[in-house]
Amino acid sequence: MSALAFNQAVVRFGSATILGGTSLEIAPGEFVSVVGPTGCGKSTLLNLAAGLLAPSAGSVDCLGTKVSGINRRAGYLFQGESLMPWRNARDNVAAGLQFAGMSKAQSRAQAEAWLDRVGLHGAGDKYPHQMSGGMRKRAQLAQMLILDPDILLMDEPFSALDVQTRLMMENELLSLWQNSEGARKTVLFITHDLEEAIGLSDRVVVLSAGPSTTPIADFRIDLPRPRDVAEIRHTHAFQDMHAKIWDVLRDQVLKTYRRSVAA
């Protein structure tokens, strides 16, 4: 059984078809990245899996059940600022547990533990506007992981961070993912950065340029784990992989680029 399966999923907004009939299967415990040109509908794919968006045709299954409404098995790491600005870091992380009915004291204690695990020890009293971009991302990560979702959906989560912070966060994400108790979580990671995709993933899926985007290529990344995303870029295996995928991706990027220049 797939952790996540898109079955000929189509998304239309009015007369525009964003996502053409898309089929994609992700096995449990797999780390899959989706790359594609800007604005091709990568986030749409993620919103379908999250249940924030219903497909116009086709369906999305999560662990054998059809997704309808918010997907409770999934956690979502957003590109933008999703923390509640009126809650401090601790209460933001504890929020999901509180929504599920856990007491304040108990949820806060768990939140503290998670803040420690994402490297935010002692930052529980800080409000989002008092934290740096990297700290806010860590808090978002803890906010998602505390609910122990089976599937992690990530929408270019580190794209707003500076390069160094980004590499740090990628490595920490990998170590959290690899060293988590119980079964390894399934990850669907959206990015426009091919190096990030290869460095993190077991599989990289390339989406075509929009409109009516569909997956056009699927690459297995057999680089050994554990990986250091900063180091691994210098290996031949990585660079070969990069060249192979970029061959496919380049045409799509150029297509999108030409269209944006022509418009």
Binding site: F78, P85, A95, F99, A100
Partner: peptide, 12 residues
């Protein structure tokens, strides 16, 4: 984003 984020955390 905050709205969707909170919905994903299971808020009714």
């Amino acid at each position: 984003v905050v709205l969707n984020g909170t919905r994903m955390l299971g808020a009714s």
